[in-house]
């Protein structure tokens, strides 16, 4: 049986992991490769690396980093952040990334999704959507959630599916950082209305939240950062607990 996926997300700036990461076993907590290896050994199902470098210089190091990661880890990983062209994607895939995640560039230029899907296949295209509720309506936001658009979350999600996205990574800006649970109602609606996998993001705080997003939110995968980085939740224990609740999980 296909299992639900647990995905730690690492923010990368100038080739280093950012946000305080609380791993005592790490010699160098800023080294994404070392952190990724620990996650892979601890039954993470996939990894996401999000490049938040603001400069061109920082971005250039990304491809080298992707190659280092691919050399050392034996599970799939997605790379996102600032990807704006087919050439950007080609370089990252060539360096060893399995998938790329595109966000703002897809909104500005939806054809980019179909161009990437045609050239490299839908399986490597994750479209990341950040949204929050404005007067009860889920609206897509850009620039890390700072810039609102007129796009409706569900309409946009359907459009990206038609354009050839292989998966959707939905982050609820209303839930992100709250540690009060995922946006399960919106997730369930996405899951029911679409036929591609949905990754839930934003709001993970407890093991119960993961159970809820798989059961109530019908998510195919759940992504989180700080609860894993600060070891508030350890993945092997999380997975045991989810399995004991009847959720299909790889242990």
């Amino acid at each position: 049986m296909l299992t639900k996926r647990i995905i730690p997300c690492l923010d990368i700036k100038n080739g280093r992991t950012v946000k305080g990461i609380n791993f005592v076993e790490l010699r160098d907590a800023g080294d994404p490769v070392e952190l990724a290896k620990i996650y892979a050994e601890n039954y993470a199902d996939e990894l996401v690396f999000l490049d938040i470098s603001a400069t061109e210089e920082g971005r250039k190091t990304l491809a080298q980093l992707v190659e280092e990661i691919a050399k050392h880890i034996n599970i799939p990983f997605t790379v996102g952040g600032g990807i704006a062209s087919v050439e950007d994607v080609a370089l990252l895939l060539k360096s060893g990334a399995d998938k790329v995640s595109i966000n703002s560039a897809a909104v500005k230029n939806p054809k980019l999704i179909s161009k990437i899907a045609q050239r490299f296949g839908s399986q490597c295209v994750v479209v990341a959507i950040d949204a929050k509720q404005i007067n009860g309506h889920w609206k897509v936001h850009l620039v890390g959630g700072k810039q609102p658009t007129e796009l409706d979350l569900f309409e946009w999600a359907k459009e990206v599916q038609e354009l050839g996205a292989g998966e959707i990574l939905f982050t609820s800006m209303d839930n992100d950082g709250t540690k009060e649970g995922f946006a399960n109602e919106a997730l369930a609606r996405l899951s029911n209305e679409l036929h591609i996998p949905i990754i839930a993001s934003g709001g993970a705080g407890t093991i119960q939240h993961f159970e809820d997003t798989f059961k109530l939110g019908k998510a195919d995968a759940a992504l989180a950062a700080s609860v894993f980085h600060f070891k508030e939740i350890e993945i092997p224990y999380l997975k045991q607990e989810l399995k004991s609740k009847g959720i299909s999980i790889r242990i």
Partner: peptide, 30 residues
């Protein structure tokens, strides 16, 4: 949901390709 993305079990394993691999091992598929 298509594509199938993620880890699934494999079973009815035959030949030396699966030597030492247990039934229902998890493999990554897309």
């Amino acid at each position: 949901k298509v594509p199938q993305v993620g880890w699934n079990t494999i079973f009815d394993l035959k030949t030396d390709l699966f030597k030492g691999i247990e039934e229902n091992a998890y493999m990554y598929l897309v």
